[in-house]
Amino acid sequence: MKITANGKINLTLDILGKRDDGYHEVEMIMQAIDLHDVIMVEKNDSCDIILDCKVDGVDDDKDNLIYKAAQLFLKTYDVNCGVNISLQKNIPIAAGLAGGSADAAAVLRGLNELFALNKSDDDLCELGGQLGSDIPFCIKGGTMLATGRGEKIAAVDAMPDCAFVVVKPKIGVSTAWVYNNYKAEIVEQHPATKSMLAALCNKSLDTICKTLDNVLESVTINRYPQLQEYKKMLCTYGAKAALMSGSGPSVFAVCDDKKKAEDVAQKFAAKYKDLSVYVTSPVNENKGR
């Protein structure tokens, strides 16, 4: 069985405070994108989880989130069977695009279908939330408001038609490091979440672009100031707006359509030859279903 694992970007990301459990209380609007990995799952007779994951920088053993998701699924639902899982990796790692979470979510959805258990998305979200805060969003996809530590999600109005240019620098950023170094006192402006929700409701791409905001830029861009340059150049080349996704270091830019995005991407890639540049689009329905 083949399952698509869509990445994500953050239209907004706000931190409301520190929780008693050590996590941060967040409020963010997340958008699934067509940049995706592909997961293949099949039954085997060994009663083992066999993971084929030959990707530089990605664990291929029991520390892999894919393995943990399969292990939790099989144990929770008392499935007495082994599985083979293979990964075709397209989403860059340590990028702020939820690649690992997307893969784990795809495994949960894939195993649910493979074993015909008919568990609801809410069931899978509850399971996935035990492994990572972004996994529930990656299970449902589309456009979502995420709260709590990110695991509480609610569908909101879909992103209007547009295209994105995603830029991944040759650096990796630890999500834990970014959150641990966040200092609320230096953040002068917080996302206008209600305004973004209204802009999505009105399908106003211009207002959406004006309302993009991510407080974690205060950490990651402070450490890697070249990200601010990349944002500026994407707009110079014709994008409507640009923002860092998640904890970074990836930066995305919003364009009116794919043709414009391809033009922006071509100009950007010609200047910054050592960066990975992708053209993608919003996904408002979960393609992996």
Results as ranks from 00 to 15, higher is better:
residue 3 I to E: 01
residue 5 A to E: 03
residue 6 N to G: 01
residue 7 G to H: 07
residue 8 K to R: 11
residue 13 L to E: 12
residue 14 D to E: 13
residue 23 Y to A: 09
residue 25 E to F: 04
residue 31 Q to Y: 05
residue 32 A to L: 06
residue 34 D to L: 14
residue 40 M to H: 14
residue 43 K to T: 10
residue 44 N to I: 02
residue 50 I to M: 11
residue 52 D to H: 11
residue 56 D to M: 04
residue 56 D to W: 00
residue 60 D to R: 08
residue 62 K to M: 10
residue 64 N to G: 06
residue 65 L to Q: 11
residue 73 F to T: 01
residue 76 T to C: 01
residue 78 D to N: 13
residue 92 P to L: 05
residue 92 P to S: 07
residue 96 G to V: 03
residue 97 L to C: 10
residue 102 A to S: 15
residue 104 A to P: 03
residue 107 V to W: 02
residue 114 L to W: 04
residue 117 L to Y: 00
residue 120 S to D: 07
residue 121 D to C: 02
residue 123 D to M: 06
residue 123 D to L: 05
residue 125 C to W: 00
residue 125 C to R: 08
residue 126 E to K: 13
residue 131 L to M: 06
residue 132 G to E: 04
residue 136 P to S: 10
residue 137 F to C: 10
residue 146 A to E: 06
residue 151 E to H: 03
residue 152 K to G: 01
residue 153 I to C: 15
residue 153 I to N: 13
residue 156 V to P: 12
residue 157 D to S: 15
residue 158 A to N: 15
residue 162 C to R: 10
residue 162 C to E: 10
residue 164 F to M: 09
residue 165 V to C: 10
residue 165 V to M: 05
residue 165 V to W: 09
residue 172 G to R: 02
residue 175 T to H: 06
residue 177 W to F: 15
residue 181 N to Y: 01
residue 182 Y to D: 08
residue 183 K to R: 15
residue 194 K to G: 04
residue 200 L to M: 13
residue 200 L to R: 12
residue 200 L to Y: 13
residue 201 C to R: 14
residue 210 K to L: 10
residue 211 T to C: 06
residue 212 L to E: 07
residue 213 D to C: 14
residue 216 L to F: 11
residue 219 V to R: 11
residue 220 T to D: 07
residue 225 P to T: 01
residue 225 P to L: 06
residue 227 L to E: 06
residue 228 Q to N: 14
residue 231 K to L: 01
residue 234 L to P: 12
residue 237 Y to R: 11
residue 239 A to V: 03
residue 244 M to D: 10
residue 244 M to A: 04
residue 245 S to I: 01
residue 247 S to K: 10
residue 253 A to F: 05
residue 255 C to R: 10
residue 259 K to P: 00
residue 263 D to H: 13
residue 265 A to S: 13
residue 270 A to N: 15
residue 273 K to R: 14
residue 275 L to F: 11
residue 279 V to H: 05
residue 281 S to D: 09
residue 284 N to H: 02
residue 285 E to Q: 14
residue 287 K to H: 09
